[in-house]
Write a protein that binds this DNA or RNA. Sequence first.
DNA 1: CAATATTGTGTTGAATTTGTGATAGATGAA
DNA 2: TTCATCTATCACAAATTCAACACAATATTG
Lengths: 226, 226
Amino acid sequence: MIRILLVDDDSKIRDMVTEYSQAESWLFDKAANGIEALRLMEKHSYNLIILDVMMPGLDGWGTLRRVRQDSDIPVIMLTARDEEYDRLLGFELGADDYIGKPFSPRELIARIKALLKRSGAYDTVREVIEARSLFIDTSARQVKLADNTLTLTPREYDLLAFMAARPGQAFTRDQLLNHVWGIDYVGDARTVDSHIKSLREKLGPERELIATVWGTGYRFEGGKNR
Amino acid sequence: MIRILLVDDDSKIRDMVTEYSQAESWLFDKAANGIEALRLMEKHSYNLIILDVMMPGLDGWGTLRRVRQDSDIPVIMLTARDEEYDRLLGFELGADDYIGKPFSPRELIARIKALLKRSGAYDTVREVIEARSLFIDTSARQVKLADNTLTLTPREYDLLAFMAARPGQAFTRDQLLNHVWGIDYVGDARTVDSHIKSLREKLGPERELIATVWGTGYRFEGGKNR
DNA sequence: CAATATTGTGTTGAATTTGTGATAGATGAA
DNA sequence: TTCATCTATCACAAATTCAACACAATATTG
């Protein structure tokens, strides 16, 4: 079971969120401020916490700070404004995601799902991606070429798995950076090339599975499309 | 390619929006009511839908309900008033954002951008443009002629994809420069001719798909017109 | 028909993009 | 701590693309 703590002083928002997420069969606990939230956290453990920034008493930042003292629970912050300063402060304090008010419940739910998935709260569905003689076991994070197991570095694996899951689609280097490295990563786009290079090296005879899309980026040639 | 469906019974609004968004090189399809919109959605997939609430026949709410039955496409609603009731009804039905009429095109464009961005993938819709024996896979950036894959340069591809997505429409060289090369490109308009030439060469038997419009520019003959 | 305007095409040096090896710093395990 | 990866970035070579130009071919006009 997935248990989520929603902390917001506005009861309308609390009700709205729980109502529109009924289809997900998550268990919601609600708190109106940071103090209440911390009390609940002593009693229960949560898969995810949603924290409003502006609250009377202990606000969202203070609560987040306390939460991070002894846990890595995924946290989504609700900020009134979408200001750069808030985002930076939040990342520094260890928030995992953001939503600016007003938001649509649909969006919040989508982000909850994404974050739960990322944190591994859902049992990963065992899925094996096949392409020619390449087999990618996504739950084991293991890649086989014919009968040999390849030893890929984490980045190499993530990059390969991401592209192989979307065969036939061309990605720009920036898209790959966003999806594989993370949305807030800043750095040289050519870094992607380096990892593509070492991937191709390890793929050996199947190196052609990763095609260069000139002027754009790369594409995994998987035969089967989505 | 980013493809957007704009549904509004007021043709003035339809024209205004497409005009102001020229710099974005999005592909707009337009419909005057829900029925038309649903018909278009059967034929194409969209990155985003903009729905006017007040329309004769099938209105915005009804259309939204139908859309949500089988897709998660981001939807922006155009409401005449900015009433709380409308917002709540819309969220319940699964709208992603709102904009109250009258609105500034600038604001709508900003919201479209924001929604495309946070809808995760600022990625292209998977769509294959067909014309005779030519197949253009816009997400793979790949073009097939019958069964052979053509190797186009980036410019050639962009030019072909842009024109083929708007069959039957004549473009001046300047328009093509603006849309394909970019709004701030300066250079000889005849450069377009060079690329048209090499495209025709590679199209071989289907070279006639690109027609010369004397005194104006070029047109892609796609059969189906929009 | 001739004169003019517009488009087609081959060529080419410059510019852009990608492949690759080297390397220093970061990270994490022993 | 030391050691062994891993990672990002750089620089240079190789591959590819591009814009522009000149001239040929074709269409339009009067």
